[in-house]
């Protein structure tokens, strides 16, 4: 039996807690660690475990539901649902490119070689395949 999926957030980070929760859960969803039918903890339980406000987790769940990953039924918690692979819109692709460009520039400025950056991106893309 695989170990239960975990998420980790850093409250000292400049990235808002809800955004960290969305990103961390999305990684698990994309890599298949949370297959369709999986139930997530209730908003109350996850907020308590992470030590953040209920609204923070509620907002994260709503965003994931809007992306088509979760079914939020009142009183039943959050359930992972089957989701097709939507084609990314051109403006979304442009936004991803901008974010990647910024991240790659940051890596280059910290001394990471271009070949290493390309290898890391390839490796991460492969590892996120369900």
């Amino acid at each position: 039996m695989p170990p239960p999926a975990k998420i980790r957030i850093d409250l000292n980070s400049a990235v808002p807690a809800y955004r960290q929760i969305v990103d961390a859960v999305r990684v698990l969803l994309v890599e298949g660690a949370l297959p369709p039918g999986s139930e997530l903890p209730s908003v109350r339980r996850l907020a308590m475990d992470l030590g953040v406000h209920f609204n923070t987790v509620g907002e994260a769940y709503r965003e994931l539901a809007a992306e088509g990953w979760l079914d939020l039924r009142h009183g039943r918690g959050a359930t992972v649902i089957a989701r097709g692979s939507p084609a990314a819109r051109p403006e979304q692709l442009q936004e991803f490119r901008t974010r990647l460009r910024s991240l790659v520039a940051q890596m280059r400025s910290e001394g990471v070689a271009p070949a290493r950056i390309a290898a890391e991106l390839r490796s991460l893309t492969e590892s996120l395949k369900p």
Partner: peptide, 15 residues
């Protein structure tokens, strides 16, 4: 320094 990292199980059980 105050610890900022928090970890949580995504399994629904435990309650």
């Amino acid at each position: 320094p105050p610890p900022g990292v928090r970890e949580a199980d995504l399994a629904p059980d435990g309650d």
